[in-house]
């Protein structure tokens, strides 16, 4: 009981919980689930953009895209490392991902049809991710917060490269401009869904706010993202595909239209355009890499015997 009071005191004082501190089972489980889902998202998130590495239009764009995809791998590893401080096992989490027992962000189940998608992912998808992640730099679990600080620093490169890519295309031919608008049309609504279900239906929010794992509700963060994106879209010269977007002086925020939550749940439950392909690729990469992991372990064992 004393331990629980001490835990609550530390959290309420906005101090950090560290790996070897006592914590409630529910706190540990919630964190493992949330951080693992986040890690899986980074790893699966390498695929939509990785799709364009071999077809990037210039060496400059290819080098940038490679660096970005490498960052996503890095983010996944920081986060898996954070789950391991809670007693999870990375190998086990990977198995759960491949077997569909743990989820990743539904946004990565949409296809990247043109190179403009690379830019829009950087601008909108990474922009939404940053909205979600900046408050997590102050989350109550120390290793998670520290991982998020590293991730956020790197994400800002991702968002800026995306916006710059789109600005370049918007200075190009009519076909290029149309390509950007088409990509915005396809990614806008899924980006809004990245913040998760509305507060009224978000089962985990309340407890996570008390534990200071989450610092803002889904709807608050979604609103912040819309407010940020509207002037950016104007500056870029694209139209966000929602006729209901309008400044509401009374609220001091932009109003926006209704999200198609049926589509959201359909994609979450596995019926998005690319769910099966993403998991299959991940499984194949894991299985094809098995001999490398085994060989490295065998070499290490041999060296140990010789020494």
């Amino acid at each position: 009981m004393d331990l629980e009071r001490e835990f609550e005191r530390v959290v309420a004082a906005d101090h950090r919980i560290e790996p070897r501190d006592w914590m409630p089972d529910g706190y540990r489980k919630t964190l493992i689930r949330q951080i693992a889902q986040h890690a899986h998202s980074e790893i699966i998130g390498m695929q939509p953009e990785g799709n364009w590495i071999s077809r990037a239009p210039s060496l400059r764009r290819k080098a940038i895209l490679l660096a970005k995809v490498q960052d996503e791998a890095g983010h996944g590893l920081y986060l898996y490392a954070a789950t391991e401080t809670l007693g999870a096992d990375r190998e086990d989490l990977t198995t759960k991902l491949i077997e569909g027992r743990q989820k990743y962000s539904s946004i990565f189940n949409y296809p990247t049809l043109t190179f403009a998608d690379v830019g829009v992912i950087g601008w909108l998808v990474d922009g939404a991710a940053i909205c979600n992640q900046v408050p997590l730099c102050r989350t109550s679990y120390g290793p998670y917060a520290r991982a998020m600080i590293r991730v956020c620093k790197e994400e800002s490169f991702h968002q800026r490269q995306g916006y710059e890519l789109l600005m370049t295309m918007m200075r190009g031919t009519d076909a290029q401009k149309a390509m950007v608008q088409d990509a915005v049309n396809r990614w806008w609504w899924p980006s809004l869904m990245m913040f998760g279900p509305p507060d009224a239906e978000s089962s985990n929010t309340e407890q996570s706010m008390v534990w200071r794992i989450k610092r803002h509700t889904n709807d608050e963060l979604r609103q912040r993202f819309v407010d940020m994106s509207v002037p950016q879209a104007e500056k870029l010269g694209v139209t966000l595909p929602d006729p209901k977007i309008a400044w509401n002086a009374e609220r001091g925020h932009h109003d926006f239209g209704d999200i198609d939550w049926d589509e959201f749940w359909q994609v979450v439950k596995g019926d998005g355009p690319c769910n099966a392909e993403r998991i299959e690729n991940r499984r194949k990469a894991h299985e094809d890499g098995a001999w490398v992991r085994e060989a490295a372990a065998a070499y290490a064992a041999k060296k140990e015997r010789v020494a």
């Binding site: 890095g74 920081y78 490392a81 520290r146 991982a147 992991r293 490295a296 372990a297 290490a300 060296k303």
Partner: peptide, 17 residues
């Protein structure tokens, strides 16, 4: 932070990356 590696040398290289 932390990472997994088969041996010390690989740990160093992975840490760099």
């Amino acid at each position: 932070g932390s990472l997994h590696a088969p041996d010390d040398e690989m740990a160093l290289r992975n840490a760099r990356d």
